[in-house]
């Protein structure tokens, strides 16, 4: 079991987008009720890692603030590419000679 102490407001939660616990709480006060709601308001989980690191932390804060169960926090929507890919590569395509 991990401890469930409150996150200090100035603690970073989403390191890709540099979003703090305080900003996530503010988003919840403004009406966010799930992971997607938090993401839309403050961009937590929108960076290069797409929430792989912070999604569970955001879920924990939602659970603490709203007194809900982790399954009620939902998850953000998965979208391709699931790992960052440069535009050039996407545009280039593949010819038979590459194989």
């Amino acid at each position: 079991m991990m401890s469930r102490e409150k996150f200090p407001d100035d603690m970073l939660v989403c390191r890709c987008e540099e979003i703090t616990a305080g900003e996530i709480r503010q988003a919840i006060r403004e009406g966010a009720r799930d992971v997607t709601g938090v993401k839309r308001r403050v961009r937590a989980g929108m960076g290069p890692c797409q929430g792989r690191t912070c999604e569970k932390l955001v879920q924990q804060i939602l659970c603490q603030e709203l007194r809900i169960d982790p399954r009620q926090t939902g998850r953000s929507t998965a979208r391709p590419p699931v790992r960052p890919v440069p535009f050039g590569e996407l545009a280039e395509g593949v010819s038979k000679n590459d194989l």
Binding site: P8, D10, M11, V13, T53
Partner: peptide, 10 residues
């Protein structure tokens, strides 16, 4: 891996 949050975890 899961992360654990505390001040300075980054």
């Amino acid at each position: 891996e899961n992360v654990v949050r505390f001040k300075g975890w980054t």
